[in-house]
Structures are given as C-alpha cells and as structure tokens.
Write a protein that binds this DNA or RNA. Structure first.
Lengths: 113, 113
DNA sequence: ACTCTATATATTGGCAGCCAACATATAGGC
DNA sequence: GCCTATATGTTGGCTGCCAATATATAGAGT
C-alpha cells in the first residue's frame, strides 16, 4: 500500500478502531493492521497527534493506566465520537460510490433496443 | 462532498474519464460530474496541471483543435495510460477493501458455538 | 552481562497535492 | 451591453500525512 493511503480517512479509522471498546495507541495500530489484513499500518507520527486532536474535539477521552512500570494512555469514544463515526461512515460510502461510479461507470441505459 | 475529496485519486479519475474516447479538459469536468451524480467537481487549478503532468509521463497525448475561433486541447489515453488505469483500479479496490474492513469489520468467526 | 526486539508514547521538520483566486478569451442569449 | 457558459491556464497557500528522531520499560536469546 502506497504512502498517504489513509489520507483523509484517518479520523474514521481511529474512531472505528475504538468502537468496540477502549484501546491504547499501540493497540490501535495493531488492531487496524489486523482488521485490514496487513494493508494499513498507522505511523506513530500520524496517529498520536491525531488522537490528541480528536480528544480536544471531544470525540475521545483518555486516561493513563499503569501496567507494572509501563504507562499506557487508553482512549475511548465519547457520545460525540460515536455520532462522528456514523457521519464518517456515511461520507466514506458517498465517496466510494462517487469515485467508483467514475472508475467503473454503469453502462448507459438505452431506450428499448 | 467536502474539499480534497479526490485527493490521491485524481489521476485515476482523469484516466477513467478518457477511457471511452478523447475529451478536452472542460468536457472531462462535466463527464466526471455527471458520472458521479454531481458529487465530484474537478477544479481547473487541479485538473489542468494534472493533465499536463500525465502527458509528460506519457500516459496521455493531446492535440489542439479549433471550433470556429475557439481552441480546445483534446486528450486521449496512450497504451501506457491504459495500463496505468488498470493499476489505478487495482489500487482503488485494495484501498476500499482495506479501509472498508476497518470501518465495517466482519464479525470474528468463532469456533462452533 | 549484553544485545536485540517488542512494547509504548511523543515531537519535529518537510513536502506532496489539492484548492481558491486570479487571469484571459470566445460564443450565445436576453 | 451584460451575463452566463465555454475553454484554458498560473500562482500562492494550506492541510495533513510521513520520515526521522527521541525516550523508556520488558522480555527473550546468547
């Protein structure tokens, strides 16, 4: 998968990854990687700033956990985040429908041949 | 449709628009607009430089036509352009499959309940 | 003990690629 | 005469992702 593949869809991916329950950043990377069959690999320099931004926007909330000496920042969706995810899904369907229609145009219907 | 919608897929759209025959730039805009049901509207500041780039890459060739006093630059696919279009289609399918799998994950198969 | 990898989070600088705005010109309708 | 559609192009700017870098703990291998 070429670079910039997730451009414009990063927020949707992050929100979707958190839909089924809280995860910390590193776990989000592996979850997205697995769900996509290895095709999508989020970069830390891409994801962590995005998670912070989504939290500032009120779509996520986070809390720090400790596992031994290790610290993790665990994110979960807010209600606004769930609504935003629904909008992102709609936008994604519209985009794929629009581009798909140009890439693979339906044959023009013709008056009863 | 939000801005930057075509980002990363512009070349694919242009090549696909020209697949069924030569068109000039303005006609490409209306063709893409119609095929996408009005969802996609290419900007001149986006398209014309892209057409030039694709011609430099050898994926398109162009010739100037005259309709009365009007001049049109008519583009058509080269063989390399057709091959590139096929690759763009494959890349598009892989991308939609990957992102789609994250946005709408298949329920995990579980051992005979 | 030492090294390498995996786990885990974060910042910085760079840049590709699209967009808005602008510029120009012909043609046709009202 | 004016407005809109047709038609092609350039310039500057900004968004948003990436590579590179930094830091630190944990565990496995040798």
């Amino acid at each position: 998968m070429k670079g910039d593949a997730v451009r414009g869809h990063l927020d949707a991916l992050l929100l979707a990854a958190l839909e089924q329950g809280p995860l910390h950043g590193y776990a989000i990377i592996t979850a997205v990687q697995q769900r996509s069959g290895g095709a999508l690999e989020l970069r830390t320099g891409t994801m962590y700033p995005a998670l912070n931004r989504l939290e500032r926007l009120g779509l996520l909330r986070s809390d720090w956990q400790s596992v031994g000496e290790r610290r993790r920042r665990c994110y979960e969706l807010t209600d606004a985040g769930r609504r935003s995810l629904a909008e992102e899904r709609t936008a994604w369907r519209e985009l794929t429908a629009a581009i798909g229609a140009v890439l693979d145009p339906a044959p023009a219907p013709r008056p009863a041949t």
